[in-house]
Amino acid sequence: MKYFVRIADLPQILEVEVEGGRVSVAGAPYEAHLAAVPGTPLYHLLLAGESWTVAAQPGEGIGRWTLGVVGERIEVEAVDERTRHVQELTGRRPVRAASGTIQAPMPGLVVRVAVTEGQRVEAGAELVVVEAMKMENQLRAPRAGVVAKVHVAVGEAVEKGAPLVTVESPELSG
């Protein structure tokens, strides 16, 4: 089976073909053996003799994982050919944070709202400040746009994932 793998935010998609105990990455063949380390979320990969220990935590959605290797934590996504084909036909692929609504990344207290509805914001502009774990956390606009809705007010306690501010930007579609 052939998989199309995206690593973090790297632009290129890697084609990985799995066939028995062999894999080919972008056409180059390797011997590969993956074994789960019992009682842990760790996997041990032998890839053409190279030894790699990788921690795997399932992500949101089929084919998505957060992998940990040599101290780094990296999100990956592997889709098979058919899924990829469907994605191409519908003209979209799953994108992280495609929503124009900024959500609370953790539970906390809204201590500042820096924008009002209808206001034009640049990418990186401060929208809301949420205090959690003794720290004030600035939430910024991921892209330029217009503030369509402010969902919270100062002093409000928010749960993780609560909508804070919706920013509409023309380039969001597609």
Partner: peptide, 22 residues
């Protein structure tokens, strides 16, 4: 947030093999 070059291939293989397992 650029992953190190040397981890790209092993991570791609792990992702594909995990997808195969799934």
């Amino acid at each position: 947030p650029e992953p190190r070059a040397e981890v790209v291939r092993p991570l791609a293989v792990v992702a594909a093999l995990l997808a195969e397992e799934q």
